[in-house]
Design a binder for these strands. Structure first.
Lengths: 204, 204
DNA sequence: ATATTATATGACACCTTGTCACTTGTCAAA
DNA sequence: TTTGACAAGTGACAAGGTGTCATATAATAT
C-alpha cells in the first residue's frame, strides 16, 4: 500500500504520477518497468517517489487494485442482469473486456499484467470473488443463484468461483499470447464455460 | 534456448553451472535472481555466461523445460495406470507433486516458479498437453479414454485439457501462497476435480 | 515566534546487466 | 611441427537501475 504521504498529495500531483506510472506499466511488464522512467515522466524527484511508495511493486499493485474496484461493480450489475447465473455473467464480463476495452494504453497495461502474471496479479483478478473480503463479497454471493449450481455445502460455492475464474483468467492470457481475434477468443471461452456447466465427463 | 556453445561444454562444467542456477532460482524468484550471483557460485567469468545464454530468462526457461520432460513421462505412466482417465491421472500427479517432492531446493524452485508465474512459466506446466508439440502429445492423447468424456469433436479434448490444467495449476499456486498442508491442498483439489467431472451446474 | 513534525530533494554508494577488445585453446591442412 | 582459422574464454567497462540519507524547506501546533 502507498504511504499516507501519497494520499495527502494534491490531486493534481497524484494524478500526474499515476498517469506516468500507468504509461510505464503499459510500455513494459512489471519486471522491466523502471522507477527512473516513471519519475522522469512525472517530473518528481527520486526521493519523493520513495516518500510515497515502498517500491515499484507497491505502486503497481495499488493501480491494479484500483482497477479491480471498478470491475467488481461491473460484476455485480452483470449478476443482476443474468438472474444470478454466474457463468452467464462471467461470459458477459469477458465480452466486455474484449470489446469495450477503451484506450490502447489500458489494453497494453492489461496485456502486460496478463502475460507476466505473478501470483499477486492473478489474485487481483480472482479477488473479485475472494472470501474474507469486503461486504461486496456478500453482496455478490447473495446475488448468485444457487439453484443452478451443483453444490451441497456453502463452501462449494467458493470452489466453483475458483474454477470459473481460473479458467476465465487462462482464457484471457491465451487471447493475448496467441493473439486471438475477439471472435476466436470468445468462441474458445464459450466452449470451455459450457464444459464447466455440464461437466467434462459424460453423464451416466 | 541456450547457445550451442553451452551444449559443447564438458559435462562437469555444465552441471556445475546448472547446479548454481538452480540454487539461485530456488533462493529467489526469477525477477530477483541475478546472473552475478550465479556466476559467482559457479565460478565462471561473466563473459562466458553470455557465451552460453542470451540472458537470465534463457537459462531459466531451459531449466524449467528440462523438468517438464520428466513430468511428461510421469503423466504417461499415470494415464496407463488409470485406464486413460484424465482426471484420475491428474489427481495422482498432483499427489506425487505434494508428497514425493524430494529435496527442499527443488521445492523452493517450484514455489518461486508458481508464485511468480509468468505466462511462459504457466505454459511450461500446461505444455504437458499442448498441441503442435512432439509425438509425445500424440501418445498422451491416444492414452486418454474418450469414452468418459463429454466431447463431440476432437478439438474439445484440447479444451478439456486446458481446463484441467488451469484448475490444477491454480491449486498448486494456492497451496504455496496460502501455505496449505498437503491434506488441505489435496482435499480442495479433489473437490474441484469432481466438480469438473460432474459439472458446476445441476443436471436437469 | 518557536518548536515540532511532515515533506521534498538529489547526490551517493552499491548493484546489475550486456558488450567488446583481447587472449587462449583446438584442430585440420600444409 | 607449424600455421591459420575458428571456437571459446575473459574481465574491464559503460550505462543504467535501486534505495538511502543528510539536508533543506514547508506546514502546523503551541
Amino acid at each position: 500500500m502507498p504511504k499516507q504521504t501519497f494520499f495527502n498529495l494534491p490531486v493534481h500531483k497524484r494524478k500526474t504520477l499515476m498517469k506516468a506510472a500507468e504509461k510505464e506499466f503499459a510500455r513494459v511488464p512489471l519486471s522491466k518497468a523502471s522507477i527512473a522512467s516513471i519519475i522522469r515522466t512525472a517530473e518528481i524527484p527520486r526521493g519523493s517517489f520513495y516518500q510515497y511508495f515502498e517500491n515499484k511493486e507497491d505502486l503497481y499493485y495499488y493501480i491494479l487494485g484500483e482497477q479491480t474496484k471498478e470491475r467488481k461493480l461491473n460484476l455485480i450489475s452483470l449478476l443482476k442482469k443474468h438472474n444470478g447465473d454466474i457463468i452467464e455473467a462471467t461470459i458477459d464480463m469477458y465480452y466486455d473486456f474484449l470489446v469495450q476495452m477503451p484506450d490502447e494504453e489500458e489494453q497494453n497495461f492489461l496485456k502486460n499484467a496478463m502475460l507476466h502474471v505473478t501470483h499477486k496479479v492473478e489474485n487481483v483478478f480472482t479477488d473479485l470473488f475472494n472470501p474474507g473480503e469486503s461486504e461486496q463479497l456478500k453482496e455478490i454471493t447473495a446475488l448468485i443463484n444457487k439453484e443452478y449450481l451443483n453444490i451441497k455445502e456453502d463452501k462449494d460455492l467458493f470452489h466453483i468461483m475458483q474454477i470459473v475464474t481460473a479458467v476465465a483468467f487462462r482464457n484471457f492470457v491465451e487471447k493475448f499470447s496467441k493473439e486471438l481475434s475477439d471472435e476466436e477468443a470468445l468462441e474458445s471461452f464459450t466452449i470451455e464455460m459450457n464444459l464447466l456447466k455440464n461437466g467434462l465427463y459424460k453423464r451416466e
